[in-house]
């Protein structure tokens, strides 16, 4: 966007919102909204603290493991659903149900099944991320150009060859889109898991700060979380743009 002939860098609007936040904080509108400057200074205070590092590690671990399983299970499942009518008929209703189900309500069930530890948190994270990854991989495969599959077969491709050399690459733009949305959902999943299942990681920090009315601390952790989720999603968006050159021409 251009203002008075100057090209503004991306997301300049954040400056306006940051200013607004600062003003509202300074006039003491609400106890829950401390000035942004306080939040930022608190942020640099707690970043090096052992409690924060520990929380970052715990959350990062559960998040990475959850996303890993969602990707490793979700992509092949989606591709198989796109390839096989039978598998699709069997699984699609479940995928659709879980995609729109209020997964938070399932968390107590997971706690009964898998205990109160890390395992349940990872499974919660996976459950938040996996369905959209499956659906997108499936959609990517379903729009594949049939003659590419036929071409590979005519040159003697095995089933494994077509899977790795045709189906995966043809569906890659959709797969990356699915993983990007899945990761954003996984952030929700890991925090909900850490709040409901066992109070660890960032969930524990949120719990600690909000129950002690440390609102600057609370907002600081939220900003860190948002920044992390945003960066990961931007990296994936970058990868998506790298394959976009053929997305329209398959």
């Amino acid at each position: 966007m251009k203002v008075f002939g100057y090209r503004l860098p991306g997301m300049s609007s954040l400056i306006i919102w940051a200013l607004l936040w600062e003003i509202i904080g300074q006039i003491g509108f609400s106890f829950f909204v401390p000035p942004l400057s306080d939040v930022v200074s608190t942020l640099f205070e707690i970043l090096p603290s052992a409690a924060f590092q520990k929380a970052l590690f715990e959350t990062g671990y559960a998040f990475s493991a959850g996303v890993f399983f969602a990707v490793v299970i979700g992509i092949p499942t989606g591709i198989f659903m796109g390839k096989s009518r039978l598998i699709d008929e069997l699984l699609l209703p479940w995928v659709n149900i879980f995609l729109s189900a209020p997964l938070t309500a399932l968390v107590p069930v997971l706690m009964v099944l898998f205990g109160f530890g890390m395992k349940s948190i990872i499974i919660t994270t996976t459950l938040f991320a996996i369905w959209i990854i499956i659906l997108n991989a499936r959609a990517g495969v379903m729009q594949i150009d049939r003659s590419l599959v036929e071409m590979a077969r005519s040159f003697g491709a095995s089933a494994w060859d077509s899977f790795t050399k045709i189906y995966f690459w043809a569906a890659l733009p959709e797969i990356l889109g699915g993983v990007r949305i899945g990761i954003i959902r996984a952030v929700k999943g890991v925090i909900i898991g850490q709040l409901l299942i066992s109070i660890v990681g960032f969930g524990a920090l949120f719990e600690l700060y909000s129950s002690n009315f440390l609102m600057s601390h609370f907002w600081a952790v939220l900003i860190v979380l948002f920044a992390l989720a945003f960066s990961i999603s931007e990296v994936l968006a970058f990868l998506e743009r790298k394959v976009a050159y053929y997305a329209a021409k398959r």
């Binding site: 003659s147 036929e150 071409m151 005519s154 040159f155 690459w169 021409k249 398959r250």
Partner: peptide, 15 residues
């Protein structure tokens, strides 16, 4: 391996 196919729509890998 004794036959090779040329496709009407070319069937090239776009990537």
């Amino acid at each position: 391996a004794d036959r090779a196919f040329v496709f009407q729509d070319f069937a090239l890998l776009p990537w």
